[in-house]
């Protein structure tokens, strides 16, 4: 997974990923999402900005190790935020569903906007 860590609202997000060390025949599907979630003392709020599901068949059309690109235009808000009671975190999340009910997930956080600095 790779992308620039700091992005501005309204920017395009190009996101590249590849799958290694997982046999293609064991994959049931993959979900890629760009989302924000709150973190802190309150219950978690979540907002999914982009979502795409690829089936095992779609994934197996090309070698898994080959980089795949997902693109989306980022929204104007909510911006990343580092508060005291709550933080707003943006990330790209990949969820790989394996046959037999197992799943592997990976997250790549990024910072949307420049309102608060990392603390």
């Amino acid at each position: 997974m790779s992308l620039h860590a700091g992005l501005e609202p309204g920017d395009g997000l190009d996101f590249e990923f590849s799958i290694h060390r997982v046999p293609a025949e064991s994959i049931d599907g993959l979900e890629a999402s760009v989302l924000w979630a709150t973190e802190g003392k309150g219950s978690e709020d979540i907002g999914v900005h982009y979502f795409e599901r690829l089936s095992g068949t779609q994934l197996s059309q090309r070698p898994l190790q080959e980089p795949r690109m997902l693109s989306t235009k980022l929204p104007l808000c909510p911006l990343s935020y580092e508060g005291r009671l709550m933080k707003i975190r943006w990330c790209v999340r990949l969820r790989l569903f394996l046959k037999g009910g197992r799943e592997i997930s990976a997250e790549q956080p990024f910072y949307l906007g420049h309102v608060t600095r990392e603390v």
Partner: peptide
């Protein structure tokens, strides 16, 4: 200019 905007979530708000 680095002011955080108003935010209204289900459980959290600014």
């Amino acid at each position: 200019s680095d002011t955080m905007h108003s935010f209204q979530g289900q459980h959290n708000a600014i």
